[in-house]
Design a protein around this nucleic acid. Structure first.
Length: 387
DNA sequence: CGGTTTTGACCCGCGC
DNA sequence: GCGCGGGTCAAAACCG
């Protein structure tokens, strides 16, 4: 009897213990959940702070860029004079991005009439092409030099819209822009990006609306025409053409024009490299080809790029399907201290790395870019996972 | 229902 | 001046 009672006592005790254990476990779990919630709140706060900071920074950058563009033409004159004094090899007559000789008499008259207006307006339209790459942890001094070159080049970047722009934009708000472009007789710099990608609609950070498709005579594969739809008046266009019939074949994307609106984070990150390429191309008049080439090597150190002028369109072509390894880098490229992480669905492995440089075409297959974007994305994922 | 894509027609620069 | 061909328009279809 005693044994039975003892056993039943211990069974009851075990039951009580088990229940109390469960309660403790429950409490602990609740506490954990509470902690996670608190952390979640903190992260939310942090995220909103980061976003606020980013937005305010973006505003400041736009402001500063606007001011610098206004001042850059004066600065350019100053630098040109310095160049002359330094006996640099400068070919002033070469003006890539312009085709002044093609201006008709009719257009010349218009230019005379509105040239003063153009000088003022063009200052506001020297924004960078809205695409490019993200480059992290770059040597500050080198970047400063390059950015300086880019700014100077942007001052020269007076592009013209072709007749298609005249047709496409009929509202009066755009008329000034169109007249300006028409009168100067200039053609826009184009940047071609060749990338092997299964999806032709490369997400380069902007929103695009397809407005046409055409099969060219010389190429049986259709070419698609897209217009930037982030702003109703944005003049930026792109053409996408597949380079081969296979599904895996590369796409050639040709960008043309300047965005008239703030770019999203991805796009503004992307803007640096190709914008630099376009700008450097257009600054070919004031810098030697070797220095231009070297500068592009900094922005596109592991891929082929070429410069050409087709149909009076100065064109920078970036071939992301063909890795360009360090033997082709400029001598002073800081390979020893940093490296590059890039994976554009290219079968070739990226060079060995100790620091990260990231080219980030979101939508293309990129490899672990620890950019602000990805950090924010991770935060968002974590937050949504916890809620 | 609003935004996007499709697609035939049209425009116009350019070469001959 | 004419024809070719790249680029754009715009209405209809499609989609979420």
């Amino acid at each position: 009897m005693i044994k039975e009672e003892t056993v039943s006592y211990f069974q009851t005790f075990d039951g009580v213990m088990a229940e109390s254990d469960k309660e403790e476990e429950l409490d602990a779990t609740k506490a954990k959940v509470e902690k996670v919630r608190e952390e979640n709140e903190k992260l939310k706060l942090l995220l909103s702070t980061i976003l606020n900071n980013y937005n305010s920074l973006q505003m400041q950058v736009s402001k500063v860029l606007g001011q610098q563009q206004g001042a850059s033409s004066m600065e350019l004159d100053h630098i040109d004079r310095q160049d002359e004094n330094n006996d640099y090899d400068v070919d002033i007559s070469l003006r890539l991005g312009r085709s002044e000789q093609k201006i008709s008499k009719k257009e010349e008259n218009k230019v005379d009439k509105i040239s003063t207006k153009n000088v003022e307006e063009s200052k506001d339209k020297r924004s960078a092409l809205g695409f490019g790459f993200q480059i992290q942890s770059y040597e500050a001094s080198k970047l400063d030099d390059l950015c300086r070159q880019v700014k100077l080049a942007n001052a020269e970047n007076k592009c013209v819209s072709s007749r298609k722009d005249v047709k496409s934009v009929r509202n009066e708000n755009h008329q000034d822009v169109l007249e300006e472009h028409e009168q100067t007789g200039l053609k826009k710099t184009r940047v071609c990006v060749k990338a092997s990608c299964e999806d032709p609609s490369i997400n380069d950070g902007c929103q695009w609306r397809k407005y046409g498709q055409k099969t060219a005579k010389t190429n049986p594969l259709p070419r698609a025409y897209y217009r930037c739809s982030m702003s109703s008046n944005c003049p930026v266009r792109k053409q996408v053409q597949r380079c081969g019939e296979e599904e895996t074949s590369a796409f050639m994307t040709t960008y043309e024009g300047n965005h008239d609106h703030p770019l999203p984070m991805e796009a503004s990150h992307m803007a640096a490299g190709t914008s630099a390429a376009a700008s450097l191309l257009q600054s070919g008049s004031s810098s030697s080809s070797s220095s231009t080439s070297a500068s592009l090597s900094y922005f596109f150190p592991f891929h082929h790029f070429s410069i050409s002028t087709t149909n009076s369109h100065p064109t920078v072509t970036l071939d992301l399907t063909r890795p360009n390894y360090p033997n082709q880098l400029p001598d002073d490229y800081p390979l020893s201290s940093s490296s590059f992480s890039l994976n554009f669905s290219s079968p070739d492995p990226p060079p060995p790395s100790s620091h990260d440089h990231t080219l980030n075409f979101s939508g293309l297959r990129t490899q672990a870019p620890l950019s602000t974007d990805s950090l924010l994305a991770r935060y968002r994922t974590r937050l949504s996972g916890q809620q």
